[in-house]
Amino acid sequence: MFHNVQAVLFDLDGTLIDSAPDLGAAADKMRTDRGMSSLPLDVYRPMAGAGARGMLAKAFAMTPEHPDFPAMREEFFVNYERRMTQLTSIFEEIEPMLLALQRAHLTWGIVTNKSKRFTEPLVSSMVPLSTAAVVISGDTTPFSKPHPEPLLEAARRLNVEPRYCVYVGDDERDIIAGLAAGMTTVAASYGYLGAKADTQAWGAHASINSPSELLQWIGLA
């Protein structure tokens, strides 16, 4: 499955960047603004990949079905937008891994469910990510993962057939989307779900414990 790879696509949060500190802080501010106690980052981190849905679930035990969810989500978005680059960082080993892809003349890009409102400022603020050949946000197409369309759109923009693409993500929906798109899939177990998730059950073609392991799978290490 890793033969003739022409492009490597990545999820963003939990795969390329550790945005949990800023996501958690944005949700925690909502608690403290209401006179509630602050929660430690460890509470928020496992659900950071789920964005507002995950953060509101941890901060207020609120589900999307709650009538106040839309208003609370927008409040969270505003908080996050104001601070989203303060504590967010690129995972260790990501930069040298991306450089290795570039040296091998492999195109790489980003496919995330994060809205363009947040994706573009984040990517442009981090030099290693600004070299992405394509960036597909959650609202670039009418669909978001686990639907395969965002991945298929990335392949179209790169002019690469999906079967020659590898998609790397730290959430089961990433693998579902990648498989549905006909891509080779890699589960990033170093992401937010980590050891608590049975990444083997997702059906990915491979699982990696660190970004550098990806290079082994595609024959660059």
Rank of each mutant, 00 (worst) to 15 (best):
D22C: 11
L214V: 04
G109R: 00
P150E: 12
E93C: 07
Q216H: 11
A26W: 00
L56R: 04
S144N: 14
I136H: 01
N4H: 15
P211D: 06
T32R: 13
L9R: 03
R82F: 01
K114D: 09
V186K: 02
S207G: 08
A197K: 00
Y164F: 05
Q216A: 15
L99S: 15
E153Q: 11
E92F: 05
A133P: 04
L151E: 03
L9N: 03
M36R: 14
R156P: 05
T32G: 09
L9H: 11
I208C: 12
K196P: 00
N159R: 10
W202I: 07
A26C: 08
P150A: 02
E81T: 04
K114P: 05
A48W: 05
N209R: 09
H205R: 11
T184R: 10
L158S: 02
I110A: 13
E74P: 02
A59Q: 02
A7D: 07
Y192F: 14
C165N: 06
G51I: 04
L87V: 03
T85D: 07
D13H: 02
G219T: 12
H147S: 14
L214D: 02
M47E: 11
D22L: 03
S19W: 05
K29Q: 12
F60I: 01
A26G: 08
A25T: 11
P121N: 10
P96K: 12
E153H: 09
R34I: 02
D33K: 11
M30T: 01
A132R: 00
R117M: 02
W217Q: 14
A187H: 09
D174M: 09
V111H: 03
C165G: 03
H105F: 13
P146Y: 01
R82G: 08
A154I: 04
S19E: 09
G49K: 05
F60A: 14
M1N: 13
L9K: 07
V135W: 01
L87G: 04
E74Y: 05
L106F: 15
